[in-house]
Simulated scan of single mutants.
Amino acid sequence: MDNRRKGVQVCNDMFVKTPRRLPEPLASVPFTFREALDAGVSFRRLRHRELHAPSRGIRVPDLGALACPEVTAVPEVVRPFTRITAFCAASHATVFTFWQFPGYLPGLDDSRIHITRPDTMAIPRRRGVVGHVGQFFDDEIVCVDGLLVTSRPRTWLDNARRMSVEELTVVADHLVRIPRAAFEFRTQPHCTLEELADMLDRHKGTPGIRKARLALDQARVGADSAPETRLRLALEDAGLPEPQLNLPTELFAGVVRQPDLSYPEYKVAVEYDGDGHSSAGQIVRDIAREEDFSRTGWLLVRISKRHMQNEARGAVSKVRAALSNREWSPDC
């Protein structure tokens, strides 16, 4: 660069003003124009190139938070989209992630934010948004940390159209499971089977409701994880008897085990060993567990992710062999 061009560059740099810092909390979270103006921010400051504009009337001080699809359900990211459009709440895939539902939902890598409003109003249309309309009862919209979102049962139904019956069952089992007080900050399930059934009765004719009804028929209280639900469904689809789920079983005096799935009549227990079973301490505990079952004449079948491949054929084969060893037959 010659001296003249260098001089122009230095001159330009001298006149580039550092923007005034935004007031908290706007300096670290996405916000709407109205929130900024109410906080005393000028129109000129809102037009500074430092701020990212994901959608009309919204500004983001840090592009990274909005550009990453994995965080589009973070309340701070979603909130301005629900506030700038009147009478709306976050919904569908956005809230599927927000509620941390297990299971597979197609399109979760889409960074657009889903919002919905009553069907008496126009469908939301703006950049970065997938808009929906629908009928809502009062308890189907809840406020979490200042963010309006669809309730868990309503979110389950809203996503039914795009999910398989198996994945809908996985989510239903997650919603109705009894939490373990020693490890969780709650003592009640997210909802009951009756509440899910009521949700379906409220919205007859909703797209995906037939799949949701089939999933509800398959849902059971007791599964502690998505792999446990998938394993149970695979066993039942293969014609094996329906197992008990996390049933406390007294093996001998002072020793009670709670296998993931069990067939007490045949003294067969089934455990799904996830990634957490690879640690040294867990391996020792797993050996002790297996010894306890063996000591009292139970067969313990251990299933891993490998056995769940190819439509869980390996898992089904192992459990069938154990049941057959205990004189079970398809005619029982």
Rank of each mutant, 00 (worst) to 15 (best):
S91Y: 01
C88S: 15
S42G: 02
E76I: 05
V133Q: 13
R125G: 07
L63C: 04
R112Q: 12
P61A: 08
A122D: 15
S111V: 13
D145H: 08
F43Q: 10
G103K: 04
A160I: 12
L148R: 14
G103Y: 00
C68K: 14
P118K: 02
R162N: 15
L105D: 03
R161I: 15
A90G: 02
C68L: 13
H132N: 09
E140N: 04
C143L: 02
R56S: 11
I113Y: 01
Q135R: 14
F137L: 14
S151M: 06
F87Q: 11
A73Y: 05
S55W: 04
V165A: 15
P75Y: 05
G64K: 12
V149Q: 05
P153W: 10
R49T: 11
S164M: 14
G103A: 05
E70Q: 13
N159Q: 15
G107M: 05
A73V: 03
T120D: 05
V144I: 12
L105S: 06
P54Q: 13
H132C: 10
G128K: 08
N159A: 13
T97H: 04
G146D: 00
F98G: 01
R56K: 13
G57C: 07
V41F: 00
R59E: 04
N159F: 11
D139M: 04
L147A: 00
T97D: 08
W156H: 10
R79N: 03
P61Y: 04
N159L: 14
I58F: 05
R47T: 03
M163R: 15
H52E: 11
Y104K: 11
V130Y: 11
V78K: 02
I123V: 15
P69V: 09
F136S: 05
W156I: 13
T97R: 13
D145P: 00
G146I: 00
A53K: 11
M163P: 13
T150Y: 09
V74K: 09
G134M: 06
L46G: 00
L51A: 11
G134V: 07
M163N: 14
A67T: 07
R154V: 10
A86Q: 09
V133N: 08
D110I: 03
V74P: 02
V77Q: 00
C68F: 09
F136I: 06
G57W: 04
A122W: 11
Y104C: 08
S151K: 07
D158N: 15
P124F: 08
E76K: 08
G107K: 03
T85D: 05
L51Q: 06
R161T: 15
R127G: 13
D110E: 07
R126L: 14
P124K: 10
P80W: 02
D110A: 04
L108T: 06
L105H: 12
E140T: 06
R49M: 09
I58Y: 02
I113K: 01
I115H: 03
G64N: 14
